[in-house]
Write a protein that binds this DNA or RNA. Structure first.
Lengths: 218, 218
DNA sequence: ACCTGAACACCGTTCAAGT
DNA sequence: ACCTGAACACCGTTCAAGT
């Protein structure tokens, strides 16, 4: 016999879903056990019956967001395209839920991170990379992805959300002395339209080009 | 006439130095305005006379640590070697002070980050990279570096400090089902000695190889 | 000008008491 | 078994009062 529950009973899933909603709406700083409990029309203590602590809650929310939808099958495309697709999945998830960027770097979320690592690693193998390089190069791809994610999350958390990243970059660089920052200033001056997603992919392509080159020369 | 001060008077520099000391000794979670004030034999309010808030204090501490010592001159070496040296400067600073890793991704520290970006960018220019690629490729190098830094900082903050990262990797992967994680498991099995610093450099070399290859093909 | 430390407005987490 | 909400042990930050 299944346990009888009130229709509005709490559950781990409902709590995680509500947490995601609040994180998306009010950012990382907007989620507290008190605000979450109020949202769920209960007391803060109730949440602890279903979730061990805030770290676990954030990890569960990250996990849920990254595993939404069916993971695109890697069949039928080149390993390079598969890696690009995996990378964009993560990128787009961070774009939609900036707070994940912070979580990917936390201990409680390492299970999710290893899932991405595994998918990347298989494609690195499919590229015919020598066994001795597989770990390093799969790691490089992952570090790059989490690096972008963490930066984006950091800015989303603290910068004015009304500012695009393009605006942000130009406003920060405008404060720099061009005499001390010739490269940054020259680059900022050229910058008309700057697409962050394309820039992210350019980095992935750089790593893929490196893998191809170094792999052939060994 | 210079202002007369007690020998043990507070100053921004003394506060930042004490903060670095405490961050190194007790980690990111060990630094509070109360503990810092106690260390300085004063009240928490006193610190606010010299420092706007905790974000500014952490940014100042990060700035101080990354700018210690004379920045190695880039003269006389190849751009590739110069980039490796810049990357290792950051890596070693994070190794010695793991808490910087978290800061490099925060808004208050962007000034320091742009200093690194500038140094990398000049070397990217020295490599003869086409203007249209300079921004993307310098960014890729920076994102990779901060990605590694943030991961290391995350683990240092939360994992058992007695565990080496090698131990950590094997303990996490041991909990994964080899059937679901064939790549991760195979890689973990091969892993005898795993040098994090060398792995970091392998990623930099991958990016450098990519730059050389893509640059020649355009 | 600079310092003190009590007080304010929060946190995450616990736990006795309820149903 | 599950929920409630007051209470505990903290935070960062402010500010009247001191020197």
């Amino acid at each position: 016999m299944a346990t009888v529950r009130r229709a509005d009973a709490l559950s781990r899933d409902r709590i995680v879903a509500a947490a995601i909603e609040m994180l998306d709406a009010t950012g990382e700083n907007g989620l507290t056990f008190r605000s979450l409990a109020a949202h769920l029309r209960t007391g803060p203590g109730a949440i602890y019956w279903h979730v061990a602590n805030k770290d676990e809650l954030l990890a569960a929310a990250t996990d849920a967001v990254l595993n939404r939808g069916t993971p695109a099958s890697e069949a039928g495309r080149s390993p390079q395209d598969a890696i690009r697709a995996i990378a964009l999945t993560v990128y787009d998830a961070v774009e939609a839920h900036p707070w994940i960027g912070t979580q990917l770097v936390r201990l409680a979320s390492q299970r999710v991170v290893f899932r991405v690592f595994e998918r990347i690693g298989r494609q690195v193998q499919a590229l015919g990379v020598a066994p001795g390089d597989q770990f390093n190069w799969a790691s490089a791809l992952l570090y790059y992805m989490t690096g972008v994610a963490a930066q984006n999350a950091g800015l989303a958390r603290e910068a004015d959300p009304a500012l695009s990243r393009h605006d942000y970059f130009t406003s920060v660089t405008a404060a720099l002395d061009p005499a001390d920052f010739p490269f940054t200033s020259s680059v900022a001056a050229q910058l008309e339209t700057h697409n962050d997603r394309e820039q992210f992919l350019a980095g992935i392509d750089l790593l893929l080009a490196g893998i191809t080159t170094l792999n052939d020369s060994r």
